[in-house]
Structures are given as C-alpha cells and as structure tokens.
Nucleic acid binder design. Structure first.
Lengths: 221, 221
DNA sequence: TAAATTTATTTGGTGTACCAAATTTTTTAT
DNA sequence: ATAAAAAATTTGGTACACCAAATAAATTTA
C-alpha cells in the first residue's frame, strides 16, 4: 500500500495547464492560488517542489510555466478526467452535469494502461460530455474553434460546444436554463447598459449575465 | 478539493474484516500489523482513532473487533473492490490475476451510488474473478461452501472456487500452473511425508506444496 | 517461579499538504 | 517620487499516516 501518489501534483498541473491555455495574461502565484482555492503560501511551497521535480519552470518575473514534462502530465490528467466523464455518462447513465466530482476522484487512478483501455472501450471519443476535447494517448487535442458567447453577433444562431467554467454552481445554473453542450441557441440581443444577453433556448428566451455568457463557448450553427 | 478521505481507514477495516472471518484466533495488534505490512506503533495509533470513530471495539484482552458500523464500511469496501475487479476483467479485458493493484486504488472512490450503478451494469455478479463473493447493497454475502484443497479426498474431482491468498506472488505462481477460479482439477494423491499434493489440471499432473494447497479453495465437482 | 520471549505501548521523528498571520518586495496610482 | 495596494515570501503552526527504537507488560518456557 505505497502512498506516494503525489495526488495533488496532478491537480496543480491540470489547473496550471488550464490557466495557461487561456492565453490572456501570465499566471502568477495569486492566480494559481485562486484557481486552486488554496492559500498562496501553500501554493508557493508546492510550486517550488514542482520546480524541483522539473514539472514547472519559475521565471524571474514571477510567472509560472509548465515544462514539457509538466505539460505531458497535465494532459494525461485531463485525458483521464475527461475519459472517466464519458464513462460515467455513457455507461453509468449519469447526467453530464453530475459527473465532475466523481471524475475528479477517478482522474487520480494511476495506470496509463487502464486509461488507454477505457479510451478504446468508449470508442476513442474526441470530446467529453461537457464538449471539452479529450487529449489522445500522445497528448494531442482536437480544436473546436469555439468562441465565447460574448463574442457573438446578435440575431445569429449558435451551438454550445463547451463551458469555460466547469464548476458545479455554474453547471447547475445552466442546467435550469437547459443550456448544455450540443444545445442550439440564438443570440437575440446584447444589452449594452449592463452587458447582459437575451438568448433563445428551446423556444424560450432567457437572460444571461455577462459573466455567464463569457463562460459559454459556442460555434456558429 | 476536500481531502478528508480517510483513505487508509478503508484498508484497516477491510483487512480486519478478512482476518476476523477466518475465525481461527483473535486478532491482536501484531496480527493486524503483519497483515497490513505496517509498523505496530502505526497500527496501534490508527486502531485507537478507529475506536474513537466507533469503527472498532477494543476489548480488554487486547483483541480488536469491528463494530456494526465498522463491519458495514468494511463490507462496502470489499464490495467496491470486487465489483471493480469484475469491471476490469469483463470490460477492460484484464486477466484475473492482473487486477488486484488497480482495484486496490478504485475501491477508494467515494460514491455508493457509483458502485450500485456499476453493480447493475455488470449484471449484479455474486462473485469476483478470483471466485470471492461480492457483498450486495446490504452487505449480504453468498456462501460458497468451499473447502481448502488440503481437506479433500484423493481420487476425487473438484472445482476451484477461490483463493485464500490473493497476493500477487501466489496468483502469478498459480497462473503458471493454469490454476484459477472455475478450473476443474483432480486430487491424484496426497504425499504423506512432506504434505505435498499431486493434482491433475488440464490433463497434466502438477505438484503443489502443502502451503499452496491450503490456499486453494474448492468445491466438489 | 524466574528467565526468556513476545506483545503492547510510548517516545521522538519523518514527509506531505495544508493554513493564518506577519513581513518583505513589487507594482500601481497619485 | 512616494504612499498605497497588491503580490510574494517567511514563519510558525496543524493533521494525517507513517517509522524506529526504547520501554513496559504480558505470556511462555524452562
């Protein structure tokens, strides 16, 4: 019963990878701490360990980067997470917005072999139930070319591909509005004065805050 | 990312349950430590915590017992372990002697709901790939009425139901002899002078030490 | 029963992963 | 440029789960 699983390492790398993919700004200790919901002191300590392990690279300007090794591990973790999500939805009949917590546990099972078997068992899916791409064995990700709803044009129709925020509160919220990956919607109107949106989903018009709209990723449809 | 999984608690309870089922003798700290492969000081400390949590009961004569609560949790863990083993063999195409380590990890996934879904997905199996019984939702176990090969009569035919030692070395060893749950064998002869056995398996006769034979559980067939 | 052995327990440590509060450094705004 | 704000870092803790070595208690054996 060897317990040197570096369980949290995977969480750090995964979160870091996600932050870095939103190529906005540089990721510093504060950003990472917030994303992980942990104390900056804790994160600093851990990031230094990850640096010792050659998983991250600490640049003099205080920004945190992934090494190739770290990126590889992050992608593997994301792969595991998303494949388990597919499993839970397709085989265990969970709904797409119920699987996050369980996948969060399952992603830490140590066996690349099992994940590969799971992958082929599920028919080598390219996207998870949230519409997010699943890295293949070599870490390659299929691109979806999605844009946030905030970047869309009023009057046009779109399909939801995935969500930029996969937190439970957001998913629950969207569930009530019947907004989920795969659903079609029409951007009725952008309200300039508060940045909110009117969106038509399943014949009904709903209101979305700027914050919510920013986290809904869509493709023209 | 709440980390209060009491990951090891399940290992202690499971091991304790197994030791107690072999109703030989009483289970003391030494026995449990040996079974877990841990230092007695560690085990004593943990057993006291389990006592605080009302999982085990410490009797004045130093023997360790499970409370109802502890037994329930132990059975749930065993249930999880064995169902995941079935999954790995039936769905992931692992061989029966390759799944132990992985199931050891998977058994700690926290969700009774998932296990129940897994159970019905697998067709509510009563035995795992090693021939060990799988506790149902309520912790009930089907009895197999198996006896060790050492208690068998020469000249008669038997079917292997399960193995009393599920350690990898033993499983590997048996694999080489094609002995596994479900296989039929004939007890050719007991050799009195060293307690060893001659057994016919798949038309070939192999030799088994008393130790090996003691760990092979069979039913008349 | 006394000595030897085994078992139980205590004591002082370890590594991992976390935190709050204080301090230092850096950045931003005035 | 300086004061204020923000970010980074240090310091001193915590809990969990483990260990080795010393000691105490119980059991066995001679």
């Amino acid at each position: 019963m060897a317990h040197f699983s570096h369980h949290s390492e995977e969480n750090y790398l995964k979160t870091l990878f996600k932050l870095l993919s939103r190529q906005d700004i540089k990721v510093n200790n504060t950003a990472l701490s917030k994303a992980l919901g942990l104390n900056p002191a804790t994160v600093l300590e851990m990031v230094r360990k990850l640096s010792d392990r050659k998983m991250v690279q600490l640049v003099p300007d205080k920004s945190i980067h992934l090494t190739e090794k770290g990126k590889k591990k992050a992608l593997l973790t994301i792969r595991k997470h998303r494949l388990w999500e597919v499993f839970l939805v397709e085989k265990m009949n969970y709904k797409w917005n119920e699987v996050h917590e369980l996948a969060e546990q399952l992603e830490h099972i140590e066996s690349t072999d099992l994940v590969d078997r799971l992958d082929s068992y599920l028919g080598n899916p390219s996207f998870d139930p949230h519409g997010d791409p699943i890295p293949d064995k070599n870490g390659k990700i299929k691109n979806k070319l999605s844009i946030p709803l905030t970047a869309c044009a009023a009057g046009k129709k779109y399909m939801v591909t995935n969500l930029a925020d996969t937190g439970d509160p957001f998913l629950q919220f969207l569930g009530k509005l019947n907004i989920m990956p795969g659903i079609k919607l029409k951007l009725v109107e952008k309200h300039e004065y508060d940045g909110s949106f009117s969106v038509e989903v399943l014949k009904k018009t709903v209101q979305l805050s700027e914050k919510a709209a920013r986290n809904i990723m869509v493709q023209p449809a």
